[in-house]
Amino acid sequence: MAAVIVENLCHAFGQGEMRRQVLQNISFSIEPGEVVLLTGPSGCGKTTLLTLIGALRTVQGGRVNVLGQPLDGAGRRCRQQVRRQIGMIFQGHNLLRCLSAEQNVQMGADLLPGLSYRARRDEARQWLRAVGLEDQMAKLPQDLSGGQKQRVAIARALAAHPRLLLADEPTAALDSRTGREVVELLQRLAREQSCAVLMVTHDPRIVDVADRLLQMEDGCLLNAVQ
């Protein structure tokens, strides 16, 4: 079964005269373990699509099925449950400022049910090692560089053992070399977990990490490029 199935998805913002259609008849699917890149000019509806798949918005029209769970018509509680299985990486790192790197990652591991505190902490440490930050565990986000922060964010997203990873321009705040490193790391770790990835990006230099490229324009999906 595909990790994500989207069929005839439509979405609009605003009411009456101000109503603006941002997504029109979008259909695609993502297989487990697949890395899919979504590109397109800004304002074309990429982020809206990501938030709909991430169960952060209610679906207005069409069908969305994420990890076997239909999201069209799903309530708050159901969407929250689905979100637990989705890792999210944001444009800004969105780390909790008052927590150390290790604690931030553990906030992700804390979502795992039935594990002791120690096991969850070990999980967090293991992920920090995986992203190469074993020396920075006790540092607060303000003492980390941009690339390090984004790597902590990746560790946090993966620590909850997600089966789908959504990333919104994870390289936007990084220089090209660090950006490249972060994305490669993301791709490698996701592969190891056989976790599907949907990444929104503008960055043409990272296109080659993807299995598949989706292009959007004016709320429509252009023909898929292999």
Binding site: R83, Q85, M88, G92, N94, L96, M107
Partner: peptide, 15 residues
Amino acid sequence: DHLPEYATLMAMGYR
């Protein structure tokens, strides 16, 4: 002050 952080936690699946 922490609204974005709380929102992040909600996006991660915290209730």
